[in-house]
Design a binder for these strands. Structure first.
Length: 504
RNA sequence: GCCCCGUUGGUGCAGCGGCCUAGCACGCCAGCCUUUCAAGCUGGAGAUCACGGGUUCGAAUCCCGUACGGGGUACCA
């Protein structure tokens, strides 16, 4: 059994590339690293791996850091924070010569060599290998060049990369904390590039140099890295460094069981924020993908997750990102929010141009909103402007548009409904105490008097008051609407049924 | 093609050789509550633990093979 019971302080890192929007799979990796660091009292480091200059995307870095902050994953060292191993951005570390020096060191101790093969040649090589159904990969053409040949290359000023010299025989073994010992045959690997012709290191070189220098103890990264880990292990050997512990996390899959990607719709973490999911939800939910607490609890605070975290709880099988459960969990967190907090959150959403209808003037009344929030609180799954607007607009509007047929309830006709509504309007006008409970008592009595079922009277009233078949509890709605508007709406509905149009 | 990882109800997980007539959560269905919808409560359906061989007194749990899924195979990370 693999030892997974690390409790001493660890140094772990999240090392994103600023090549796009940070997506949920990515952040889940970050989150697990963070939790592990917090659990052990260690450090969580953020390092930016911007060595692929071609794929860099403007704004990506900001969004990555923004996503970390939104989730509450604070870093102990990294961009904007500094630390003993500054800088934490690889392009800046490159300027310092760190990677070129490391590559040079490997050349000097015989573990790497310069290669001048052109991309065209490599392309042709690959095509030929494919045509012959052989496995593709570099043929080590430059590996055994003589000193004279190398000198000639240099004199010509050919574009040069540095390749790692993969041992021709033996085997590479490393221990994966989750999966146990993994064995690879190096002869199947090719002499891979560690320093590109533009002077930037590849991921392989850069992350090893940095992980080593920064004292990283555990590498928690996604499963897709398993196949390149033997390269990394060989490099640690080449440098004579001790490799860290490897923990290859399962990847996230879409509902179609392929690797979760943009094709599956919204996968960018910040889109979940924009769609009304709470950071608490995302944190909790993401932590549960591929990990579980020993006690089977699922709804947990950040602190509880940290307290319960153990590498033992990690699952090596890939998990599918299930939005239905996410929505359920968001509802749980939404319901836990104090009314005032939720109200503050809802305010800007409702005031947004695509929130409440334009006809409703802004700003909306804060206190009134706070009064309304309890009516919709437990019905929310996420903070969705359209949904919210539908649930709340009629509280802010002077008049609502009724569909007469919706007012008429089962077992009633238009005339009966209109007359019942008239009685109700009068009752509302005369009600001594305009509060939910007394109103309910009074209206139940009215049902008896009119020989109607509560379902019938209340249903008609609900539509009359809100223009919706589904709405919050009726008498709370009346109270929130106030006596005048309630009476007016009920009267108007009655009139509409009777005359086909309201008499104003 | 080759290499590697994985496989427990629709989904997320538990299970670490006997406590498993496989447990929990989401979802689904039904009932209760009830003025609608939610929420809540109660109950239910749903898994021959991918399949086939072994090992063992005993296997979802260990080993091998097959199938399926996924990942990798770049001067991308």
């Amino acid at each position: 059994m693999t030892d997974t019971s690390h409790t001493g302080p660890v140094r772990v890192r999240y090392a994103p590339s600023p090549t796009g929007d940070p997506h949920v799979g990515n952040l889940r990796t970050a989150l697990l690293n963070w939790v592990f660091a917090r659990r052990t009292g260690g450090q969580f480091i953020v390092r930016i791996e911007d060595t692929d200059r071609e794929r860099m995307l403007d704004g990506s870095l900001d969004r990555i850091l923004g996503a970390l902050e939104w989730l509450g994953l604070d870093w102990d060292e990294g961009p904007g924070k500094g630390g003993p191993f500054e800088p934490y951005v690889q392009s800046e570390r490159k300027v310092l010569g760190k990677y070129a020096e490391a590559a040079q060191q490997l050349i000097e101790n015989g573990h790497a060599y310069k290669c001048t093969c052109t991309p065209e040649r490599l392309d042709q090589l690959r095509q030929r290998q494919r045509a012959e159904k052989k496995s593709t990969g570099y043929d080590s053409y430059c590996r055994n060049k003589s000193d004279e040949e190398r000198e000639a290359d240099r004199a010509q000023g050919l574009a040069t990369v540095v390749r790692f010299k993969v041992p021709l025989e033996g085997e590479v073994v490393f221990n994966d904390v989750l999966r146990g010992p993994l064995t690879f045959d190096p002869s199947l690997l090719q002499d891979f590039v560690i320093l590109k012709s533009d002077g930037y290191p590849t991921y392989h070189l850069a992350h090893i140099v940095d992980d080593h220098e920064m004292g990283i103890t555990h590498v928690l990264r996604s499963e897709e890295w398993i196949s390149s880990t033997p390269r990394h292990v060989m490099m640690y050997d080449g440098f004579g460094w001790e490799p860290p512990e490897f923990v290859h996390l399962s990847i996230l899959l879409g509902p179609d069981r392929s690797k979760l990607s943009k094709r599956h719709g919204d996968t960018a973490l910040l889109e979940f924020r924009d769609r009304g999911f709470l950071p608490e939800t995302m944190f909790n939910f993401l932590s549960l993908l591929g990990w579980s607490a020993a006690d089977d609890e699922e709804v947990m605070t950040r602190e509880q997750i940290v307290a319960k975290f153990s590498l033992d709880g990690l699952n090596a099988a890939p998990s599918i990102f299930d939005i239905t459960k996410l929505e359920w969990m968001n509802g749980v967190y939404l319901r836990q929010l104090p009314v005032e907090t939720l109200s503050e959150m809802l305010l800007p959403e409702l005031e947004a141009p695509d929130g409440l209808p334009e006809s409703i003037s802004r700003p909306i009344d804060r206190d009134y909103l706070t009064q309304l929030v309890p009516l919709v609180h437990e019905r929310l799954k996420k903070i969705d402007r359209e949904e919210l607007s539908g649930m709340l607009a009629y509280f802010f509007q002077d008049s609502i548009e009724l569909v007469p047929t919706e007012v008429v309830q089962k077992g009633m006709d238009e005339a009966a409904t209109a007359s019942a509504l008239e009685s109700a309007a009068t009752a509302l006008e005369l009600a001594k105490s305009f509060e939910a409970e007394p109103l309910e008592v009074q209206f139940r009595a009215l049902c008896v008097k009119l020989d109607l079922k509560p379902r019938q009277l209340f249903g008609a009233l609900r539509v009359a008051l809100t223009a919706r078949k589904v709405a919050p509890p009726l008498f709370d709605t009346m109270v929130a609407l106030g006596r005048d508007r309630s009476v007016a709406r009920v009267r108007r509905a009655a009139s509409l049924l009777l005359h086909g149009q309201p008499i104003s």
